[in-house]
Amino acid sequence: MLKSLEIFKTASAMARHAAGRQAVVARNLANSDTPGYQAQDVKPFKEIVGSGGPHQMRATRVGHIGHDTNVAASQAFTDTTSQTSPSGNSVSIESEMLKSIEAERQHSRAITIYQTSLSILKTSVGRGR
C-alpha cells in the first residue's frame, strides 16, 4: 500500500538521491590528493523530477527507474566549474564539505516527509496518535 502512494515514492527517491550525492562527495574527498582527479557532482533532485506529473521521475536510460537503488551515483558528472590545482586535481575540500551538508539536510528532509506522511496515514485509519 505504501509503495503506491506518490508522497512515499517521492520521499524515497529524495532519500536515495541524497545518499547517492553523499557517496559522490565521499569519493571526491577520498581522491582529493590524487593527481588529475576531476571532482564530480550530481544533478539537483528538482532537475531529476520529470515533467510527466508532479512526482514523476525522469528516466535517463532504459531500466533506470525502479531498478537502480542509487539514482544519484548513476548520474554523476564531472564538475567543470571548479578550479584545477597544479597537479590537475579539481577537488575543493570546502566545497565538498558544503555539498555533504546539503546532502545530509536533503536526506533528513526526505525522512521527515516520510515519517509525517506515515503518521497522517495512521491517524486517518484510526491507528495513530
Rank of each mutant, 00 (worst) to 15 (best):
G52K: 08
S32E: 15
L98T: 09
T116H: 00
S82K: 13
P86D: 14
G88S: 15
F8S: 05
R16Y: 00
H17C: 00
A13Y: 03
K46A: 14
H67I: 08
D33S: 15
A59C: 08
K46I: 10
I7G: 03
S100I: 08
A30T: 14
Q22T: 09
V91N: 02
R16F: 04
T81M: 10
G126F: 05
K3C: 04
H67N: 07
H55I: 06
R58K: 15
S85Q: 07
F77L: 14
R61E: 13
D79W: 05
R127G: 12
R27G: 09
S74C: 04
P44K: 05
L121I: 09
Q106A: 15
V62G: 10
T81P: 05
N28V: 13
E6I: 10
I65P: 07
Q83R: 14
G20F: 01
T84E: 08
Q83G: 12
S108P: 10
T116K: 05
N28Y: 12
S74V: 06
A39K: 01
I120V: 13
V42N: 04
G20N: 00
S32D: 12
S12L: 04
P86K: 15
R105H: 13
R105E: 09
T10E: 05
D68E: 05
V125H: 07
K122R: 15
S85W: 04
G126E: 09
I7A: 02
V24T: 08
A73F: 06
S4R: 15
M1V: 12
H67M: 09
Q38H: 09
A110E: 04
V24C: 02
E104V: 09
Q83F: 13
S95P: 03
T112E: 09
M14E: 08
A103S: 08
G53W: 06
A30D: 12
E104R: 05
V125E: 04
Q22N: 06
R21G: 04
L121A: 15
I48Q: 03
P54F: 13
L29K: 06
M97G: 05
I101E: 02
N89W: 00
R105D: 12
H107N: 07
T123Y: 11
Q56L: 09
D41G: 08
E94S: 10
L5Y: 02
K43M: 07
S82Y: 11
F77A: 12
Q56K: 11
R127K: 15
N89L: 00
L98Q: 10
S32G: 14
Q115I: 02
V71W: 02
K46R: 15
